[in-house]
Design a binder for these strands. Structure first.
Length: 214
DNA sequence: ATCCCGAGGG
DNA sequence: CCCTCTGGAT
């Protein structure tokens, strides 16, 4: 396991991320808070591109919990069949929509506890919604951020919760809000899982990862 | 620890 | 073919 990087180096890394991309954004399409929750829930173990393809039509038909319930389980399932884990996700979205109508007036709550009470919404998904919609500096740790954090030394931990704490403890507060998207985009396009594109990496000189056999 | 589960890439 | 993709529930 890599060593936790020092604060000054981490600050320099985020200074570069900010310089290269001042307003990093996610790539999951959505039109409101509700569709954001659904899109993020659907994105588990799936690519954003794949989710976007399925939700393009779905969100035209159902962009609110009431409309999703009207569409129903079978109708929803038909729209998301191309996404992995689709049966479980369809059930979750229907149940989640019912809870939003029954308990939250059809609105998306702004507390982690309430969000995590929704079926199919765990800590990671709740953190994404808190970050993207409610603009809290929540640190969602997905497969990309876990990999990037441990490879580079930016946020070292044996599991996602440890990496989340490492980010909170080591990322300068003025970069906290956008840290999620900078890290995930870096992981998606540069520090990829199989053959990381170290030649195109703007923090290569500060990174601990050693390219093995090539 | 295991199951869920399809598309895309190498 | 195998691996990866913004995980969650049991």
């Amino acid at each position: 396991m890599a060593k936790q990087m020092d604060y000054k180096t981490i600050r320099e890394i985020f200074r570069r991320f900010h310089e290269a991309e001042p307003e990093p954004k996610g790539e999951l399409n959505h039109v409101n808070a509700y569709t954001l929750v659904v899109a993020v829930a659907l994105s588990a173990q799936a690519t954003d591109a794949g989710v976007n393809k399925a939700t393009a039509k779905l969100f035209e038909i159902a962009d609110s919990p009431e409309k999703m319930l009207a569409l129903g389980l079978d109708g929803l399932t038909e729209h998301i069949k191309t996404i992995g884990l689709f049966r479980q996700k369809a059930k979750n979205v229907i149940r989640l929509s019912q809870i939003l109508v029954d308990e939250y007036g059809g609105e998306v709550p702004n507390s982690r506890a309430a969000l995590q009470g929704l079926p199919g919404v765990g800590r990671k998904t709740a953190n994404v919604v808190l970050n993207m919609w409610w603009r809290y500096p929540a640190q969602a740790v997905d497969t990309h951020i876990f990999r990037v954090g441990n490879r580079t030394g930016i946020a070292v931990g044996k599991d996602v919760n440890a990496v989340e704490r490492a980010i909170e403890d080591n990322v300068p507060v003025d970069y906290a809000l956008h840290a999620h998207h900078w890290l995930i985009l870096h992981g998606r396009y540069i520090c990829v899982a199989r053959k990381p594109k170290c030649g195109a990496c703007l923090i290569r000189d500060l990174c601990q990862f050693e390219e093995k056999t090539l």
